[in-house]
Amino acid sequence: MIHQYKFGEYNIVIDVCSGALHIVDDPTYDIISMFEASNRDTVISKTAEKYKDISLDEIEECYAQVAGLKESGKLFTEDTFEPMAGTLKAKTSGVVKALCLHIAHTCNLNCSYCFASQGKYHGERALMSFDVGKRALDFLIENSGTRRNLEVDFFGGEPLMNFDVVKKLVEYARSIEKEKNKNFRFTLTTNGVLVDKDVIDFANREMSNVVLSLDGRKEVHDRYRVDYSGNGSWNKIVPKFQEFVKARGGKNYYMRGTFTHANPDFLEDIKTMLDLGFTELSMEPVVAAEGDPAALTEADKPIVLKQYEELARLMLKRDKEGRPFTFYHYMIDLKGGPCIYKRISGCGSGTEYMAVTPWGDLYPCHQFVGDEKFKLGDIWKGVDNTAVQNEFASCNVYAREDCRDCWAKLYCSGGCAANAYHSTGSVRGIYKYGCDLFRKRMECAIAVAVARELGDAE
């Protein structure tokens, strides 16, 4: 399977199953598009007819090079990965390596678009106790097998509303990680309201990454991100975030924005963040039910897709100006990315990755918390709902019929189970709107990577 597209001056051909990327000239691009459906003479005559200023010898040379790529297994490569789809999960069955610790099911903001219903996850307000958190870390170590890298995200709600417990849990983990031969990587997601010098010093010492919620333009951010009196939070948090990022040396953070039906032109929000001095950016489509006023519509889609293209051009332009920035979804390492076993096995939710509620219940990931039928078990007795866990374990790129003919399947690994469930009622479904956005993001990400690889940042 191949995918070919044009981006700026580049004609890009992705050979999906070999992973080879080809950057080709115009006649070769056309030859590839006809190669499998027509015979050699037809392809060459049609190409010669279109490119009258190119000699027949040269067109035959193009054809020969395409044929050579196919022969060497770098073009039109067959998909032979399906039998391997369960290998990594089978090999690591029962191993847990990452937890999303719901340290606080409460929040000091009242954002109406929050997928976690203002941090309460459709339940009662709650803070995780140190004892529950400590047991969660012990559960992670006990179930991590030979994995050395263990990841714990402090999440909510607003985790800084339970900051003392966060600090004690990190201290506990650091006290045992050497003895257990583990390496804890902590991350913190915060709305910024409670960020102060103490938080900054602690996070810079202990957090391998911090995720800072900012939606961009003041009027966009303050539309949804308000306190319980209805006041916008932009003025309060932006100076705190600027201080936070400066203290981190401008590294190991993401400004994490959400775009909605109110701002499908989210590139303007990215530009605002750049103007504020932030350079590590992640801007994500809202998770909202169809019909929700914040939900993206079909009419928004072409606007959003255009933003992704313009964003790629902006990145290359700023590269050339010596002012680079990072966009999370365009951060693709062409040569050091995940191996094929990871690419076909899915994200690991419900198997190697779980969410822990303030009272110690286990869920497949943070987006399923509060939906009782997805409860996997708890941190004392482990997973006892094996039916749900097996359903997640079998989620891979080949478990979804709609993914079979998609060129992007080895980049998304079948996509997000939560998005699939919320849009189709099945964790093996397909969130088609999200797929359209994902494919565009991958086209742009690969184009940016190709431009950088070839040293042609325009």
Binding site: L21, I23, V24, K74, L88, N149, Y254, P338, A445
Partner: peptide, 27 residues
């Protein structure tokens, strides 16, 4: 040259921002 080309069960050490292609191999 009309073409420029550029990308042995897994170990699972790679990292599990937004809440797979963007990951790096950590073996």
């Amino acid at each position: 040259k009309h073409v420029k080309t550029i990308t042995k069960g897994g170990c699972g050490e790679c990292q599990t921002a937004c809440k797979i292609a963007n990951q790096a191999c950590e073996n």
